[in-house]
Every structure is written in structure tokens, then in C-alpha cells.
Design a protein around this nucleic acid. Structure first.
Length: 290
DNA sequence: ACTAACCTGGTC
DNA sequence: GACCAGGTTAGT
């Protein structure tokens, strides 16, 4: 087959390989896939699965038994992956039968490409075997990633806002959305109905780019602040999409505020602060984010 | 609109 | 050995 294939020696696991290429193995091992990381993972997986016939699906962890019971798995055998689409943090495998398999990495999910002679990774939860002997494994330390099978296009995904890195996400849209939110703007940014693809890490990063205090009430932002926030989100997306190796896997740690409590701000030198909002850590610079 | 639950590796 | 990380959903 002349279809492009991943070199199995180079590509093992998306996050881990990026860290290796970056020469930073052994860092904090942050993964937390958000829009840029899921986009990169989908790009790699796409090259392996598109056009291939599913030979078998294995479930190695009970957390996936609910959504992928044996009866459903059997029906996938022989189906063909026509395309792999990313929407927000979701990956959608469109199948020739008209069905769709939807994967969400949650916090620690990742693809691992397993060669014919490679041992199955210990954290593999769902294994997709293809007709050309390629094997794609969903590895996930915390086993919270989800895989679901849908009979048709209807009800595939929950209600999602515009993609964070597209023109559809703009100040007019965001302003309309935030107007009915009274909580902190950081929490509003995490709502996938407001903007798709932002998670805890890039929410803090985007607010740093926008020079906005994450504790501001969402519905109090002015027009100029809204524009700054939109461009802050897009700057964070653009940087991470252009350099996935700096933000993914053990190579992570190139953030401006995330996980940098007490360190000095790269823009103004003031110490980075941390506060818990909605049960999750928010980081920001008390000096230049006002 | 807020909170618990889902999970388990890594750190305290 | 307790506890924390966190996206999403289900439950209050």
C-alpha cells in the first residue's frame, strides 16, 4: 500500500515522542490535551487510520465496557474509517457504515502507535487493530478518556461553541455569551459552549496574554477587554499549534503562568499567583493582569 | 449554578 | 497512606 505511513521507529506515543524530540524527557510530564494537543494527535492518527478497515477492537479496561460493550465492538469489525475529524477536544472517526466513533482524551489520554513486535503498553485502555497490521492504542493513565459509538450523525457531540482558533470565535460572540455569566471569566472560558477546545491550562495562558485578571466577573468585561481576551485565546492557540513539542507531554513547561506559582512573570517580573476556582487551579500575574 | 463522581499515577 | 490533578456528566 502506498498510502503514507507513520514510521514506527519515530512515532511511538504522541506526547512522549514530542518530548523526546525536544530533549526534555523527564519533565513534569504534563499532558492535559486541549485543542492544540488533540489537533496534533488527530493529525498523526489520521495518517494511520484513514482508509483502513477495522480488524478488531479490544477493550482492556472496565471503564470502557459501558460505552463499548462486546456486542457493539463486534459490529465494528470490517467497517472502514473514512475520515478523522477534530471538533473541540473531541476526535470523531467517521465510518463507512455511517456510524461514528467519538474519542475524548480527557486529562491523560493519548494515542500510542504499537508496532507488530512491540509489547502492548501497560496503560492501553482501548486497542484498535487495522487491516494492515497497524495498531492504534488509546493509552490513558487515569482511565477517564471516553470512547463512544454513535449510529448516525445525530447527537454526536454536546453543544459546542466556535473553535477557539477560528474567526467564528470573536468579540461579538464572546460578549454575547459572557453577558449572561456572573461568575469569574476564567470559569466561563472553560465552558465548551462558549468556546470549544480551551481547558484549564490555556484558560490561564489566554488570560495572561490578554492581561486580564481571571477573577473578573464575566459580564463586566468591556468591549476592549473582550477583544483582548479573544486575541489572547488565539495567541495561546497559535503558539501551541505551531510548536506542539513545547506544550505536550514531558516537554510541557513552556507556559507563561500555568503551574508557575511563585515564579516571576516573564512580562513584568512580579510573582505568579494561584487561586482555586471551581475546584481547579488558576494561575495569573498579579502585576500585569488587571 | 454549584458539587460529586469518575479514575489512578505521582507527590507529599 | 492521604491527597491532588482535572474534563465532563450526572445529580442536587
Amino acid at each position: 500500500m502506498d498510502r503514507p505511513r507513520l514510521d514506527p521507529v519515530v512515532v511511538v506515543r504522541v506526547g512522549a515522542v514530542l518530548a523526546k524530540e525536544n530533549g526534555t524527557a523527564g519533565g513534569r510530564g504534563l499532558t492535559m490535551p486541549e485543542l492544540p494537543e488533540v489537533e496534533y494527535a488527530a493529525q498523526l492518527a489520521r495518517r494511520v487510520v484513514v482508509g483502513r478497515t477495522i480488524r478488531r477492537i479490544r477493550v482492556l479496561h472496565r471503564s470502557q465496557q459501558r460505552t463499548l460493550p462486546v456486542s457493539k465492538r463486534r459490529t465494528l469489525v470490517g467497517d472502514v474509517v473514512e475520515s478523522l475529524e477534530r471538533r473541540g477536544k473531541y476526535q470523531i472517526f467517521h465510518l463507512r457504515s455511517g456510524r461514528a466513533m467519538v474519542v475524548h482524551f480527557r486529562m491523560t489520554g493519548d494515542w500510542e502507535f504499537v508496532g507488530a513486535t512491540d509489547p502492548m503498553p501497560s496503560r492501553a485502555r482501548v486497542v484498535i487493530e487495522l487491516d494492515d497490521a497497524a495498531t492504534l492504542a488509546l493509552v490513558d493513565a487515569r482511565a477517564l478518556a471516553t470512547v463512544s459509538l454513535h449510529e448516525s450523525g445525530a447527537g454526536l457531540l454536546p453543544d459546542l461553541g466556535p473553535e477557539a482558533n477560528t474567526a467564528a470565535f470573536n468579540a461579538a460572540w464572546l460578549g454575547r455569551w459572557l453577558a449572561r455569566r456572573t461568575g469569574p471569566v476564567k470559569l466561563a472560558l472553560l465552558d465548551q459552549r462558549a468556546v470549544a477546545g480551551i481547558g484549564n491550562v490555556y484558560a490561564s495562558e489566554a488570560l495572561w496574554f490578554a492581561r486580564l485578571d481571571p477573577r473578573h466577573r464575566a459580564n463586566t468585561l468591556g468591549a476592549q477587554e473582550l477583544r483582548r481576551l479573544v486575541s489572547g485565546v488565539k495567541r495561546a492557540m497559535r503558539k501551541a499549534l505551531a510548536h506542539p513539542e513545547r506544550y505536550y507531554g514531558a516537554g510541557a513547561g513552556r507556559f507563561n503562568v500555568y503551574d508557575r506559582e511563585g515564579r516571576s512573570c516573564r512580562r513584568c517580573g512580579a510573582p505568579i499567583k494561584r487561586v482555586v476556582q471551581g475546584g481547579r487551579s488558576t494561575y495569573w500575574c498579579g502585576g500585569c493582569q488587571v
